[in-house]
Each structure stands twice: as C-alpha cells, then as structure tokens.
Nucleic acid binder design. Structure first.
Lengths: 199, 199
DNA sequence: GTCTATAAGTTGATAGAC
DNA sequence: GTCTATCAACTTATAGAC
C-alpha cells in the first residue's frame, strides 16, 4: 500500500484497524489503549510492542490517510490545455469518493489532528498543503484561460473540500446514497458555479 | 437571550464561556472539570453547584447553540409566492453567518454531540430536524413553482449545511475573510446551481 | 511477541468547613 | 456559593515471566 511502511505485522494492522473503529466511534481521547488492544484481540501491554505510544498510532493512521488521498489525486491524468474543467471535476469526484469510501479513517484524519504532537502535526500540515495546492492549480489555470469563472480560487477550493469532507459527519453505509451519488452531486453543484452565465 | 434559561448566575455564565473555549480548543473528553473551573476563576468543586455534571454543562451549550440558530432562522421574512430564492439565500447567509460569528460554540455544538447522554442527544436531534426542515421547505416549494431547479432537495440542503458548518474546522478571526465574505461566497456557489441553465 | 502485574498520575464527583 | 480535601475509579506506559 504505502512504500514508506510496507512491513506491518498482522498484529500491527489489526491494531490500526481497531484504532480506526474506536477513534471514529468515540474519539481519540475517549478511546483507551485497552479498547484498541481488545479490538485487535490482544492484551493491554502488547500495543506498545508495535507502536511507541497511543499518539504514535494515531499519527500512523492520519499520515497514511493523507498519503492515500495524495496518491489518488496524483493518479489523475493531466488536462489538455483548455480542458481544465475535466481535471477539476475529476478531483472533486476523487476527493468525495475517497472520503465516503474511507469515512471512518477520514473522520479520524479530519477531526483528531489537534491530538498529534507538534512534530507530527507539522508533518501532516505539509501533506494537507500539498493536497490544497493540487486542487488550486487547475482552478487558477482554467480561470486564466477563460474556460470557466471563479471569483476567488482559494474559497472555491475550500468549498470543494468542505463538501467532500463534511460527509464524514453524517455518512453511513446502507444509507440513501452511494459514493458515486454524492460525488456526482458535488460535481454538479460546484461546476454550476464555475460555468454560471453572467459573470 | 433564551426564555427557557433566563436566570443564570454570573458564575454559571463564566463556566459556560470557559467551557466553550476549552471544549472548542481541546475537545470535551480532553477537557477536565478543573480546566473549566479555572477558566471561570473558580475552584474545582464549584462547578457542581451550577451544573449537575460535566455532561450537563455540555448539553446546556449545545442546546442553546441550536436554539440561537433556530431563532435566527425563524426571524427571516416569509417569501412572497415565486420569490422562494430570496428566502433560500437569506437562510444560507444566516446559517453561514451564525457559524462564523459563533465559531467556537458552533464547533462544540457540531462535534461533541456523541458525548451527550441518550436523552440529551435525542432532544438535540429534534432541534436539528427542525432546522433541516426549515431549510428544505423553500427549496421544495421553489422547485415546484419552477423558480429554480434542484435534482435532490435533500442533498442540496446537505450542501447548504456542509458549506456553512465546515467553517468551524478552519475559520480563525483576523484571517483573510469576514463572515459576510464567507456568507456571500456560499450564496453565490449555491445559487449558481439552482439557477443553472440547461436543467 | 504475548501475557499479567503494577507503577505513577489524573479524573469526575462528593463532603464538610466557612 | 465558594473553598479545600478526598475518594474511588481509571489511564498510559513499563517491567518481567513465559
């Protein structure tokens, strides 16, 4: 999955999966290391064989979540000149889709940042700046090329992220909508703004 | 402010204000009752003279936050037939404005719901259903009247709430944008969808 | 690598003096 | 209504047997 951490033992992976469920359901602070260990069918002390601390485990989750989203965005094809709208809509679909499909991990990654150490928080901030930058580029380029119109690319990128990320607050599987439904809805709402007549 | 709780002592109000800051900064679980008491210049045990428990204090914050937003929405003028777009944009402005202007309290109200008791949670869910219902009505009516077009009013109302609420994740005073800026941006993005050509 | 036992500190809430 | 003192329970993390 991630070249920077290829050799996780199965116990470590079970701990990460258990922690994702616990943190997503109850929050980082309300989750005890025993909760996590039990979810992984291990006993209390065993967590510390695989992770330096509870915070270290949280960092591993948040770091890999942002890494996955970055990888998905980097896989999108570059736009031909004049077709920046295609890349923007591809990105909206990708970000929405990832947050829906990984809504538990995404909830942890988006809500538990303040519980990271300063160093870890800084490291994640860099990943987040990279994501924001990737989303901003085609919006600015498309505006300059006159392909679509956007009063403030910074606020438009915030809107992309707000609509995509906010699903973590309310999405539940087996609900009314699929990930594709939600991605399509976000694309339609946001592209209507870019293509609105009477600028 | 709120007819259902008119006689808070100044100590109680200082505790509520201190708890808002602490919960918004560190989360409900990471905040201790001593943190709250100290912020209100009181000592440990005094909190329990004014509130039955830490959870009771949280409920009071979340309940009044939702009450304030409901009151603001109810104050908007009813639309003349055919001008439902006016009410929808008024609502978008109101919801965005309230979340920006009260971003600390709003953060608590939107993120700490799972820490309420079942009874209190149910009570807040009813307030939230009332808000969602108030936002849905003019969207549906305007669609039926052909004033604007909306494929799925439920998803559109979610988009209103997502764009308005998500400011609590990143807004900071003294930043680049005012509440009016953000309200205006949300109105423009969302109304462009309702008024898009080629339905 | 897993377990049990335990250390050292913190928590929400109560009791009782003033 | 405020304070200090305190309880009982719980927390992260470590130590040492297997």
């Amino acid at each position: 999955m991630d070249a920077t951490q290829p050799d996780l033992s199965t116990s470590a992976r079970r701990l990460l999966a258990g922690a994702t469920e616990c943190f997503a359901a109850s929050g980082y602070q309300a989750t005890t290391t025993r909760d996590i260990s039990n979810h992984a069918n291990l006993s209390a002390g065993s967590l510390y064989v695989h992770f330096k601390s509870k915070e270290d485990l949280l960092y591993e989750l948040i770091r890999s979540a942002h890494g996955e989203l970055l990888t998905a965005l980097r896989a999108l094809p570059d736009p031909a000149a004049g077709s920046e709208l295609q890349l923007v809509t591809d990105q909206i679909r990708t970000v929405t889709h990832w947050h829906v499909e990984n809504h538990l991990l995404a909830r942890v990654a988006q809500t538990e940042l303040p519980n990271l150490s300063d160093e870890h928080h800084q490291s994640v901030r860099e990943q987040r700046a990279a994501i924001e930058s990737m989303l901003t580029t085609p919006v600015v380029t498309g505006c300059e090329a006159g392909v679509f119109q956007c009063a403030d690319p910074r606020l438009f990128v915030r809107a992309i992220l707000s609509l995509s990320i906010d699903v973590i607050r309310w999405y539940a599987p087996n609900g009314r909508y699929t990930a594709a439904d939600l991605a399509q809805s976000n694309v339609e709402i946001l592209s209507a703004y870019l293509l609105r007549p009477g600028s």
